[in-house]
Design a protein around this nucleic acid. Structure first.
Lengths: 396, 396
DNA sequence: CACCTTTTGTCGAATATCGGCGTTAGAATC
DNA sequence: GATTCTAACGCCGATATTCGACAAAAGGTG
C-alpha cells in the first residue's frame, strides 16, 4: 500500500532542492524544521539515488565551510516532444531542461497516431543511444500535439487537423515501449509553459501567443496553466474581429482572427498584390528584406491580433504577453502592431504594468514546455518514490 | 518555532473531514494510510477542539456499527461581508456557510475606509451578540469590495469608485478589533466563489457575470479563482463592443460594454422612449410587467453581453456561465439574449458542453463567497493550528 | 439468550526523530 | 608555519510517535 499522508521521506526533502539551487544541510534543516541529523539521513538516501550531488562548498562564515548539495540534473532524463502539423521536434533533456540531444524532422501528423507514435518511439530510442543513456534513465515523456487534448487522460479530443487521433490513448500506446509517465497536452499550452520557464520564471499571469499558419495562445493564470473544460482555453484564432467581416474561415465561421491575420491570409493578400510568396519562410524573408508592402501587411496582422489581445488583457489581466511562432521571427513588426492597439485600447491600469514582447524561448518553446511538464511529474513526490533504485553516479 | 514540514497532526487529518461528509475511523485510516489507533488519537484531539462531532452510526455490516464523525459546522463562525457601492450585506456564518444572522443596510462606500470599516466592526459585534456567539468563536473575516484589490495584502488598488480607499490596509485596520485572519477581495471574485460553492461544486471552469449598474465577472479557471496580475481579471465591463461606437463611458473610453448594456444606459434609453423608470428596481418591475419595450431593451443588453462572453468562452473555455446581479432578476430575458449570441457565435466544440444559466446563489452570492474565502483560510492547517484551545461543546 | 461480527480503546513494541557531543576541516591569528 | 577558533558533519543515546495486536464493547442473528 502506498503512503498517502504522514512521514517526511526523502522525496519530500527533495522538493526543497527542486529549483536547482545548491543548499547546505543546515539551510535545509532551517527550511524543513527537521533536525540536522535527520536531514543528513535523507541526504544520504538521495545521494544513493543519484538525484542530488555535492557541489563544492559555500563561503565560510569563519569556521568550516558547509558542503553544498544540489539537484543533479544529469541523474535522469526525460523526453520532450513537440509535434506539429508537418514537423516533429524531439529532444532528450536532463532534469534542468538542458537539451542533451535533439532532432527536427518532417512529419505528417495526419498519417495517424500509430505511424506518428511509432516514429516517435524509434526517434526516442535513437536519441537515447545518441547521448549515451540507457533506457532505464528515462523517467517521463512529455508530448505536445497540435489540437485539443484532454490532459488527464492524454487523449486528443475533436482535433480538427489530426484525422484518426480522436480519442486515441496516446499514453497507453507509448507506455508499452516506455513504461514511464506519459504526459500529453496541446502544443500551445506547453509552449506557454516553456516560455515562462525560459524567460519569466516569476510571472504568475502570462499569455503566450503563437502566430503562424494558425493563431493560438497558451494562458498561465494564477501560476497555473489554463486548460479549460475541454482543453481548448486560449483558442483565440477563431475569435471574430470586425475587419474579418465577409472572410470565411476554414473552421466554417466567418471573420475569425486566424482567417484574417494568419500567414495564409497575409500570403494570399501579398500574392494578389503581385509578390512572389508562397510559404511562411518566403513571407518572413520578404519582411526582413524591407519590402514595405509585406511589412505593412504583417503590421496590420499585428493590429488584428492586438484587437483580440486587448480583450484578453481585460479578461486575464496578465503582466506579460509574449509573441512567438514562425511569423514572430519577422522582426518587431507584428509586435509593433499588437502594441499599437493594446496600449491604446486596454484599460490604463491593466496596460500600465503589461509587457508585450517577442518570445524569448523562440522555436524551442515547445520542447522546453514538454520537458517542464515531464520533469514536473517525474520529480513530484510520487514520481520520486516510484523511481528506480540507485544507479552509478554520472560523470564522476 | 513553527513546524514547516513533517508530522501528521490533527490539522492534517482534519483536511479529510473538511467537506462535511461523515466518515468512520476506519475510512479515515484507509484515506490517510495511518493506523486506526493513530487516527483515534487525532480524533480525540479534534473532538476536544470541538471542530468535529460524532454524528450517529453508519450501517452495520454484521457487527458493531462504526461511529461516524464529521465536521461540526457550528464549532466556530466567520464573518462574511459583501460591501457594494450603496449597500452593505454582512453575515455571520458557520463553517458550512450557513447563515446564522445577517443584515443588509444602506452604506456609502465613498465615505471612506474608516467610516465604513467602523460601521462594519460595529455591525459584526451586533450580529455576534444577536446569534449568541462569543467573539472568541470568530475565526476569520472575509470581505468583498467593489473595486480592484491586491488580495495578498488586502489593500484596494486604484479603485475608481472608492475614494480614499486606495492602498488602505483593510486587514490591519480591522485586526485591531478582530485579531483573526482578514481576507479581502474584489466583490465579483467572491461572488464567483459563492456561486460555484452553492450551485456548481464540481465545476473547475466557471464564469460568474454580474449585470447591474456596472458589468463585471469573476472567473474560476482550473479550479482556482483568477485574479490576474493586478487583481482585475474578469473586468469585462470595459471591453469595447461594436454597437458601442460613439458611446462614451464614464471610464473615459468609448464603446465599453458597461456603457451600452449597464442598467443606466438601458434606463436612459427607456426614458428617452417615454417610460417612467429611474432605478434598477423600476426597470426590473417594468420588465416583469411585460412591457415589450423594456423586454427588448434588456434582451438587447443580453446580446451585447453575449458578444463579449463569446470571446470569454474562446479564451477561458468554461463549462458554465452564470448570470447574476440586479438585472438578472428581471427573468430570463437577459440570459436569452446572451444565449442567442454565444451559442450561435462560439466555437461549436466549446459551446457543446457549455451551460448558460441564471445565478443560483442570487443576492447571496457575495456573502456566500466571502464566507467560503474566510472558512478556507480558517480551516487550512495553519488556521487550525493557530486556533484557540478547546471550548465547551455546542448544543449537547 | 448465547454466539458472531465488527468496531473501538488500550498497551507494549518498533520505529523514527531529536539534541548533544566528539570529530573534522578550513580560516584567522600570532 | 603552527596554533587557535569557528562552524559543520556524523554518531549515538534519549525521547516521542506511531504501529500492531489484543481485549472489551456493541449490536445483529439464530
Amino acid at each position: 500500500m502506498t503512503k498517502i499522508a504522514g512521514g517526511f521521506g526523502a522525496s519530500e526533502l527533495f522538493q526543497f532542492l527542486r529549483d536547482g539551487e545548491p543548499r547546505t544541510r543546515a539551510e535545509l534543516a532551517q527550511l524543513t524544521g527537521l533536525a540536522r541529523s535527520t536531514i543528513s539521513l535523507r541526504i544520504d538516501e538521495l545521494l544513493q539515488h543519484g538525484l542530488i550531488t555535492p557541489v563544492g562548498e559555500a563561503v565560510s562564515t569563519g569556521g568550516r565551510p558547509p558542503a553544498q548539495i544540489a539537484l543533479n540534473p544529469g541523474a535522469r532524463v526525460v523526453v520532450a516532444a513537440d509535434l506539429g502539423v508537418t514537423h516533429g521536434r524531439v529532444a532528450i533533456t536532463d532534469l534542468s531542461g538542458a537539451i542533451l540531444s535533439h532532432v527536427l524532422e518532417d512529419l505528417v501528423i495526419a498519417n495517424g497516431p500509430v505511424e506518428v507514435l511509432d516514429w516517435l518511439a524509434l526517434t526516442i530510442t535513437k536519441l537515447m543511444t545518441e547521448c549515451g543513456r540507457p533506457l532505464a534513465d528515462l523517467v517521463a515523456v512529455g508530448i505536445g500535439l497540435p489540437g485539443p487534448v484532454e490532459h488527464e487522460s492524454g487523449k486528443p479530443t475533436n482535433p480538427p487537423i489530426m484525422p484518426g487521433w480522436d480519442g486515441f490513448d496516446v499514453p497507453a500506446y507509448l507506455a508499452e515501449t516506455f513504461p514511464v509517465p506519459i504526459l500529453v497536452d496541446n502544443d500551445v499550452n506547453i509552449m506557454a509553459l516553456g516560455e515562462r520557464a525560459m524567460g519569466w520564471p516569476d510571472t504568475e499571469d502570462i499569455i503566450y501567443v503563437k502566430v503562424s499558419t494558425g493563431i493560438g495562445s497558451g494562458i498561465i493564470g494564477g501560476g497555473v496553466l489554463q486548460r479549460g473544460a475541454q482543453g481548448i482555453a486560449g483558442d483565440i484564432g477563431h475569435i471574430r474581429i470586425p475587419r474579418g467581416t465577409g472572410v470565411v474561415c476554414k473552421c466554417g465561421n466567418e471573420g475569425c482572427l486566424e482567417a484574417v491575420a494568419g500567414s495564409p491570409a497575409i500570403i494570399a493578400d501579398l500574392r494578389g498584390a503581385g509578390h512572389d510568396v508562397s510559404t511562411v519562410a518566403d513571407l518572413v524573408a520578404l519582411v526582413k528584406s524591407g519590402d514595405t508592402g509585406a511589412i505593412q501587411a504583417v503590421r496590420q496582422a499585428g493590429r488584428d491580433i492586438g484587437e483580440v489581445l486587448t480583450v484578453c488583457v481585460s479578461i486575464v489581466n496578465p503582466s506579460v504577453i509574449t509573441i512567438g511562432g514562425a511569423l514572430a521571427q519577422a522582426g518587431e513588426h507584428i509586435i509593433a502592431g499588437v502594441r499599437e492597439v493594446v496600449y491604446s485600447r486596454a484599460t490604463p491600469f491593466a496596460a500600465e504594468y503589461l509587457s508585450i514582447v517577442q518570445s524569448r524561448a523562440g522555436e524551442m518553446a515547445g520542447v522546453a514546455g514538454a520537458s517542464i511538464m515531464a520533469v514536473e511529474r517525474a520529480l513530484s513526490p510520487e514520481g520520486i518514490d516510484g523511481m528506480g533504485a540507485a544507479k552509478a553516479a554520472t560523470g564522476d
